[in-house]
């Protein structure tokens, strides 16, 4: 019953927690992508970490760029 309650009861999140939860989602995305792309399975962990870091950094860069554009225009 406790196990069922884990999936029927929502967790209350703050805005900061919401953004932090982006990190594991990026990691899982990178792991699956690299798993189906790489022929050598031993290379998957390192490649996944690099790809997830790249995704996060790229999103941060886009956010900073959009913030700069917004600051200039407004």
């Amino acid at each position: 019953m406790t196990l069922v309650a884990l999936f029927t009861t929502a967790i209350e999140l703050t805005s900061a927690q919401r953004f932090l939860l982006m990190l594991p989602l990026c990691l899982s995305l990178a792991v699956v992508y690299k798993t189906i792309r790489l022929e050598d399975v031993r290379a998957i962990p390192a490649a996944s970490l690099i790809l997830s870091a790249t995704i996060v950094l790229a999103m941060c860069a886009i956010a900073v760029g959009l913030w700069a554009v917004f600051s200039i225009m407004v």
Binding site: T9, A10, I11, E12, L13, T14
Partner: peptide
């Protein structure tokens, strides 16, 4: 608590 906050 099952009524999810919109962020969640």
């Amino acid at each position: 608590a099952a009524l999810a906050h919109w962020l969640s």
